[in-house]
């Protein structure tokens, strides 16, 4: 070993040892449960088995939160995944569907539900997948994860987006300069520009409803109980119990964002 190699390896080892163990931990709801401070911590639970892709949640969200109904943006949306027995894609990757090796679509964000077995690949084109070829098929509701380490907040250069004490990430419309860093920074793609106010817009768990003791519009309009919201600080809350003791998954855990939207029956194909 010469001096160069010695120094190189020393630097690598020291740098590796300097990473705290907590940086490698993806998410642990128990640490949040036990954290001091606010006695409310909003947490969301979505069940991909119960979701039937009716899209009533998307419709209710758009009307409740005054997101223009026909604009191709939404605070929440529903994705459909169809995985074939031969593992092959029937959908070619394109702009509307980047193609992760899976057949997935979300026409109009699922606002009008899924009324055809054909997969929407954008530009008005549909691809048919035969019933006998399907190995797995299901719907996944998506919304803001209200991350405990929100990357969108960290990148905001003006302090226009922030986390409240009860764990919801909000956007200050009067303070946002529309730079779009947060839109790019969110790994889940939940942020967009509001077509009317021209500032960053996102799901905020219907902050005007949950602070009044109501459920979010999407939770209330879901006939199947596929969406639930609860208070992680309340040990008797059914959502808290499921998050603590059930088999729940989170999206993109490798980003270390600590999302607060938990999924039941989550499949590894879901991104």
């Amino acid at each position: 070993m010469d001096r160069r190699d010695f120094l190189k390896q020393t630097i690598t080892i020291v740098a590796g040892a300097a990473i705290p163990a907590t940086a490698l931990e993806f998410v642990n709801p128990r640490t949040l449960f036990a954290a001091h401070g606010s006695d409310v911590k909003w947490v969301f639970l979505a069940d991909t088995q119960k979701c039937v892709g009716c899209g009533f949640c998307v419709k209710a969200c758009k009307l409740e939160n005054e997101v223009p109904y026909d604009a191709n943006v939404s605070r929440t949306w529903v994705e459909r995944y169809v995985i074939c027995k031969d593992g092959k894609m029937r959908v070619e990757g394109n702009m509307a569907n980047p193609g992760f090796g899976i057949n997935a679509d979300s026409p109009k964000g699922g606002r009008d539900g899924f009324t055809t077995p054909k997969i929407d690949i954008g530009e008005g084109k549909l691809v048919e997948i035969k019933e006998e070829d399907i190995s797995k098929a299901f719907f996944v509701p998506k919304l803001c994860n209200q991350c405990d380490n929100p990357p969108c907040v960290q990148v905001c250069p003006v302090g226009a987006t922030y986390k409240t004490g009860d764990g919801v990430v909000l956007v200050d419309r009067s303070w946002c300069i529309g730079c779009g860093y947060c839109v790019m920074g969110c790994p889940y793609g939940v942020r967009f520009f509001h077509p009317i106010y021209k500032v960053a817009e996102k799901c905020n768990f219907c902050y005007h409803r949950i602070t009044k003791g109501l459920k979010t519009a999407c939770v209330q309009s879901c006939p199947f109980g596929a969406r639930q919201i609860g208070n992680l600080k309340d040990p008797n809350d059914p959502v808290t119990r499921t998050v603590m003791t059930g088999r729940v998954g989170i999206l993109k855990s490798e980003y270390g964002t600590k999302p607060q939207v938990y999924y039941l029956a989550l499949d590894r194909e879901v991104r």
Binding site: T48, Q49, K50, C51, V52, G53, C54, G55, F56, V82, D112, G113, F114, T115, T116, P117, E131, I134, S135, K136, A137, F138, F139, F224, A265, D267
Partner: peptide, 14 residues
């Protein structure tokens, strides 16, 4: 049709 267009999906209550 949001619910009643038949989609025989094995992993969904649909």
């Amino acid at each position: 049709l949001r619910c009643h267009a038949v989609l025989k999906y094995p992993n969904s209550d649909r």
